[in-house]
């Protein structure tokens, strides 16, 4: 992180409010202490995030005295893009991927931190820690810069940028252990609580606001659930769980039989979907 702060003109930290973002932010606070991290946070808001995430985001920024940039793809809003009618693929493409590109272009960021980990998904496993993007934000997996030792090539021409993944070599279990060891605040949605959910397409979707219309035969139930991963609420499946403490979550994890991205509806859209999204500029 210091390498980025020292080498780039205008870095930014992508802040998605999830647990990985919380850990990444915590590391930044440590890396620059006693200074504050010398870059702003950027949240690309799809307008469909859980309300508790937004509240947590605003509280965190206020508590730490950091600068936050919130970007919403107004073009997408105007077109009425939403996860229910547009489908998850288009929604993610427009509100997340396009939104992110807009924000990076608008502010001219030449380096952006992301909380992605190599253990999440197969194509992520091959991504560099310093991952080069062309001026149009594209990723060319066959033409990545070799990354040897701890020497990172931070040089870019004007318009090009680098995505930086400081958590590349962390596993999901590492993240939870670190949250526990360092007492890092996370969004309460990770803890089990009675929440209103609807069973849909094999997962449990939480009814976070009245934009969610019930389909015939669906009913809202109160269930003890929590989330292993957070995104747009209509696209993020809850799991039934009674784990309401960090200890309980880690215990549950150790015996878990499904990977965390399973709750993400966007990955299963089509095969190799993550790799495709990344080539197009998704984080």
């Amino acid at each position: 992180m210091r390498e980025v702060a020292a080498s780039f003109d205008n870095p930014v930290m992508l802040y998605s409010i999830g647990k990985d973002s919380s850990v990444m932010l915590h590391l930044a606070l440590k890396a620059f202490y006693p200074s504050l991290p010398p870059f702003p946070l950027l949240h690309v808001d799809t307008t469909w995030k859980f309300r508790e995430m937004i509240a947590f985001r605003d509280a965190t920024v206020a508590r730490l005295g950091l600068k936050l940039i919130v970007h919403i793809n107004q073009d997408g809003v105007a077109r009425g893009i939403n996860p229910f009618d547009s489908g998850s693929a288009l929604h993610t493409q427009v509100m997340k991927t396009e939104g992110l590109k807009q924000a990076l272009d608008h502010y001219g960021f030449d380096a952006a931190f992301g909380g992605a980990r190599r253990d999440e998904e197969k194509s992520r496993a091959k991504e560099r820690i310093f991952s080069f993007r062309t001026a149009s934000h594209a990723w060319d997996p066959k033409n990545q810069r070799p990354e040897l030792w701890r020497v990172y090539n931070t040089r870019v021409n004007k318009g090009e940028s680098i995505r930086v993944f400081p958590l590349s070599n962390w596993t999901e279990l590492d993240i939870w252990q670190y949250i526990m060891a360092e007492n890092i605040p996370i969004v309460p949605l990770y803890f089990a609580k009675k929440r209103p959910v609807v069973a849909r397409d094999g997962t449990l979707i939480m009814v976070d606001d009245d934009r969610m219309k019930l389909r015939p035969g669906e009913a809202i139930e109160e269930k003890l659930v929590r989330f292993r991963t957070l995104g747009c609420y209509p696209l993020t499946g809850a799991i039934e769980s009674d784990a309401d403490t960090l200890e309980a979550i880690v215990s549950e994890m150790l015996t878990a039989r499904t990977s965390e991205r399973q709750g993400r509806l966007i990955d299963s859209d089509e095969k190799a979907s993550m790799e495709k999204k990344k080539k197009e500029g998704y984080f």
């Binding site: 190599r118 253990d119 197969k122 194509s123 992520r124 496993a125 091959k126 997996p141 066959k142 990545q144 590349s168 070599n169 596993t171 190799a272 790799e275």
Partner: peptide
């Protein structure tokens, strides 16, 4: 073998990290 091209050719192209 993560990347699409590799799956098709049946060879590992890049460095992949596993844990």
């Amino acid at each position: 073998d993560g990347l699409e091209a590799e799956r098709e050719q049946g060879i590992t192209i890049d460095v992949a990290y596993r844990f």
